[in-house]
C-alpha cells in the first residue's frame, strides 16, 4: 500500500485508478453521503436571487431565532466552560467516593438520545416537576421558556467541556505548581498564573465545540421549549417549520446561515488548537 514515487508524473486518472481500494471506498462514500448533500444545499441557495436571500435571512422571525439560538448557545457553552473546568479538576485531582461513577456518566449526553433528554428535562423542569416545582415559588419558569432552551443546551454540550480539559490536566506536570507554591505564591496565584494558561486552549476548544453542538441542536430543545417566535424559537426548529410549510427557499437560506456558522466555529476550533500546540507543545 506504500506509494512508490513514479518515474513519470502520472495524471489524476492514473492516480485514481491505481489508488488502494480503501482509498476508493473512502472517497466514494464521502462523495455520495457527504459532498453530494452539501452541494445540494449550496447549489439550491445559489439559484435564489440575492434580494430574495437577504429578505428571508433578515426576516424578523429569522433574526429572532438567530438571537435566541446563538445567545443561548453562547451562555450555555460559557457556563459549561466553567463547570467543565471544575468537573475536570475534581475528577483528576481529588479522590472521593463515587468518582468513577461520575467520570462514567459525563458521557451520558453523548449516549442518551436527544429526544429522551428533552422529554425528561421538560418533565423535571416543568412547574409541577421535581426541580421546576421547587423553582416556581421564586417565579422561575424553565420548561417552555428560553431558560428551558438553556438547560437543554447545557445538557447536550457538557461532555465537550469536560473531555477536552481532562486529558490536558492529567498530563500536566505538577513540578511547576510545586515550584510556584514553594516560592510563596498563593493558591489563587498558582492557579491563575501556572495552571490556567496551559489549560486555556483546551477550555476554549471545549467551549467552541459545545457552542457548535448547541447551535445545531434540535431534538432536546424542540421538546422542552414552547417554540414560540420571538421568545424561544431556535433556528433549527424554524427550518423544520419552514419545510413543513413546503417553503424550501426559506429552509435553505436559514440552513445555509447555520452551516456557515458551523464552519466558522470549526475554523475557530482548529485555530485555537494550532495556537495551543505552538505555545504549549
Amino acid at each position: 500500500m506504500t506509494s512508490s514515487p513514479p518515474s513519470s508524473s502520472p495524471g489524476l486518472w492514473h492516480k485514481i485508478l491505481h489508488a488502494p481500494w480503501t482509498w476508493r471506498v473512502t472517497w466514494f462514500y464521502l462523495i455520495l453521503f457527504l459532498f453530494l448533500p452539501m452541494a445540494a444545499l449550496v447549489l439550491k441557495s445559489l439559484t435564489l436571487n440575492p434580494a430574495e436571500i437577504w429578505r428571508i435571512a433578515t426576516d424578523p422571525v429569522a433574526i429572532s431565532t438567530y438571537n435566541v439560538t446563538f445567545f443561548t448557545a453562547l451562555v450555555a457553552s460559557i457556563i459549561n466552560g466553567f463547570a467543565g473546568l471544575i468537573i475536570a479538576w475534581v475528577l483528576v485531582r481529588y479522590e472521593f467516593p463515587g468518582k468513577r461513577f461520575l467520570d462514567a456518566i459525563i458521557d451520558l449526553p453523548f449516549a442518551l438520545p436527544t429526544a429522551v433528554a428533552g422529554l425528561t428535562l421538560s418533565t423535571i423542569y416543568s412547574t409541577n416537576g421535581w426541580i421546576g416545582g421547587f423553582l416556581e415559588p421564586f417565579g422561575i419558569k424553565v420548561s417552555f421558556t428560553r431558560l428551558g432552551v438553556l438547560v437543554a443546551m447545557i445538557f447536550i454540550a457538557l461532555p465537550f467541556s469536560v473531555r477536552t480539559v481532562q486529558p490536558v490536566l492529567q498530563d500536566m506536570e505538577s513540578e511547576m505548581e510545586e515550584a510556584a507554591w514553594s516560592m510563596g505564591a498563593s493558591q489563587w496565584q498558582t492557579f491563575r498564573r501556572v495552571i490556567l494558561p496551559p489549560l486555556m486552549p483546551a477550555i476554549l476548544t471545549g467551549v467552541a465545540m459545545g457552542f457548535s453542538r448547541a447551535v445545531g441542536e434540535y431534538g432536546s430543545v424542540v421538546i422542552i421549549a414552547g417554540n414560540i417566535p420571538f421568545q424561544d424559537l431556535i433556528a433549527p426548529v424554524l427550518i423544520v417549520q419552514r419545510l413543513e410549510q413546503f417553503d424550501y427557499a426559506g429552509a435553505t437560506v436559514i440552513g445555509t446561515v447555520l452551516l456557515l456558522i458551523s464552519l466558522v466555529a470549526l475554523l475557530v476550533i482548529n485555530l485555537i488548537q494550532a495556537r495551543g500546540r505552538r505555545f504549549y507543545g
Binding site: 464521502l30 445540494a40 444545499l41 427550518i239 419545510l243 435553505t252 447555520l258 458551523s262 470549526l266
Partner: peptide, 24 residues
Amino acid sequence: ISIIDLPFSISPVVAGLMLVLLFG
C-alpha cells in the same frame, strides 16, 4: 481528517434538509 469529522459540526436538521433538497 477535518472533512471526515464535518458531520459532527453540521446541525442534524441541516443534514436532513440537504437530503430533502437532493432527493425530495
